[in-house]
Design a protein around this nucleic acid. Structure first.
Lengths: 261, 261
DNA sequence: CGGCGGTACACGTATGTACGAGTTGAGGAG
DNA sequence: CTCCTCAACTCGTACATACGTGTACCGCCG
């Protein structure tokens, strides 16, 4: 292994030693001296190079990990994080013309990009709407909803979890209650049930993942998530579905087209 | 100060001690036992309560800080993070009808929500387009652009930095080169110059902030940013502006309306 | 030649100690 | 009463040490 050239510490600087070390390694990553997947020198080597205690090195590495620049692998080393291929979500991905191909949006897109899509952890229940969902769907607190939750994977890697809520009044007894909602997905079913879709509203937040989300999406440390809530409206102006999704932020770019009118 | 009730450690668990401690405090926050702004017990108190070393406590607190749940203040203590009021960015915020009021989008929105908007760090230069900007604007590598950078603040708190790029061929010698671009902002100027705006495309990413961004936006640890790149197209289909903005993710919710057509 | 185990190496967890530096409030000096 | 000082408390940084646990590799043994 070629030796990574790292500067020495600046003893006159009032910047904390561990920050200086983090700066050195960050610079090496930013300048490409350390490329994606490369191994950062081991804690022992860094201790030796800088002549500092292990805790100091670990603090420095912790900073970088918190910035999402590196990941530590137990027993192997610390590596520059590699970024997965990015999925671009266009604002027309739910357009009817796509749905009429008979495939759900996720499947069609992923195959189009050469990936192998899959869906797991499908669970369907009927329950009382939460306050937030009830408000978005224009329901009262006693109303029941069908809850469809699932997880999307590309080439076996989880990238997104989604939970849909549909008023039970609409979906009860239909294929929407089945794990396989049929060709075109639940939006196709809703249209067959007479709810011609008019528009969607998407609300996007970004935050650090909860513990469950780290597990479900196998997120690396320092990776935030998109939290996207989509509400579907039919041509009568009625909200017919709310979909609450959490996406690994480094697997996605969201793209929207807005009219200037 | 009322004493925070925290469970004891489970010595039979194989979960690391510092994680168990982080779990306890996280639970207290999630259940509202610790509210926003509340002080987490000091490191010394936690050491005493759990009978562990200080490093173990600090590890636990580090976990929570990385999750964006707490902030440490030197000399004061560790506090449950409070969230700033959220700005909702609607997808029609650049609609012409708003622009015709004579105010830039940011000013109008913020005043509407009762906040005091301000803009600083305005800098305008003319330079060669970067590869990325050139591609978005449909320019070649030698073409010049006007670069307008600024920072937006609400009640003195920075919330967003923005850099606009306009082809020099369009903007040179116009008010777009002036720090005060006039009523309605640069979009109004572009329309006066004959570039009637047709639509925008916004690309949204989320990631952890760079060091400069932490400083410019005074970001708390564990807060990701939205990175939004908007391209404006005129009715001839020509890209006339690219705006690259970085926003504190906990100050914003982005909202878009998409047609189902 | 193939599997098994040992060993070196990597990071993970935890203890203990020491000193620095920012904040706060009580108490004394003026 | 006011102002200042100082002590106490807080988190920040850094040292040294020990043992646990996962990974990779190589050589021995069957």
């Amino acid at each position: 292994m070629a030796e990574l050239p790292l500067p020495d510490l600046d003893p006159t600087s009032d910047r904390a030693v561990f920050r200086q070390i983090a700066d050195h390694i960050r610079t090496a990553i930013e300048q490409g001296v350390l490329a994606e997947g490369d191994k950062v020198p081991s804690e022992a080597r860094l201790m030796q190079h800088y002549g500092v205690a292990r805790m100091t090195i670990r603090n420095a590495l912790q900073v970088l990990q918190g910035e999402g620049l590196t990941v530590a692998e137990h027993g192997r080393g610390v590596f520059v994080r590699s970024h997965p291929p990015v999925r671009r979500l266009a604002s027309d991905r739910f357009a009817r013309r796509h749905r009429e191909q008979g495939k759900a949006a996720f499947i069609a897109e992923t195959e189009g990009a050469g990936g192998k899509p899959s869906v797991d952890s499908i669970a369907i229940t009927e329950e009382r709407a939460s306050a937030d969902v009830a408000e978005r769907l224009g329901l009262s607190a006693e109303d029941q909803v069908i809850r469809r939750s699932r997880r999307y994977l590309i080439n076996g890697q989880p990238v997104e979890t989604a939970v849909s809520y549909i008023p039970a009044e609409i979906a009860r007894g239909t294929r929407i209650e089945q794990p396989d909602s049929g060709p075109g997905g639940i939006y196709a079913r809703l249209e067959e049930l007479g709810h011609r879709l008019d528009h969607f509203v998407e609300e996007i937040r970004s935050r650090m993942p909860l513990r469950d989300e780290v597990r479900a999406l196998k997120l690396a440390p320092g990776v935030p998530v998109f939290h996207l809530v989509r509400t579907a409206y039919d041509t009568d102006g009625r909200a017919v579905e709310v979909c609450d999704t959490v996406m690994s932020s480094d697997a996605y770019v969201l793209s929207y087209e807005l009219p200037a009118r």
